[in-house]
Amino acid sequence: MTELVGLRAVNEELQRRGGRVLAVSVDPPSRSREVVQNRKLGFSILADESGDILRKYGLLHEGGGPGKKDVALPAHVLVARDRQILWKRQSARVQDRPNPEDLEALVRGLRLGDDSSE
């Protein structure tokens, strides 16, 4: 959860290009609201409580959470127009996350005011 705080700058960089960060977890909106407000994230956390969307992405870790709860497998996906995937990365370990500076550099590589898709 602390990992989201590091994505503020990435979100600002995306906003300059008309886009944004969308975090997704199985938490209910009420839980995520606390995180968004308390941590002043500046971007949304979406709630996939049933895990249906996570399953579509191949990212539902069944019984992987505390108390054998189904949770998301941590992953990052950069999506352009027409839902084209420009870049993606799945975490190999629970504590493994991409460096926010690297993500920022990745987004800066996209053209301003365009999502760089053909």
């Binding site: 990992e3 944004r20 629970v94 999502d115």
Partner: peptide, 9 residues
């Protein structure tokens, strides 16, 4: 614009 999806636990 581009979206970064962040799936987290």
């Amino acid at each position: 614009g581009p979206a970064l999806l962040v799936f987290y636990r």
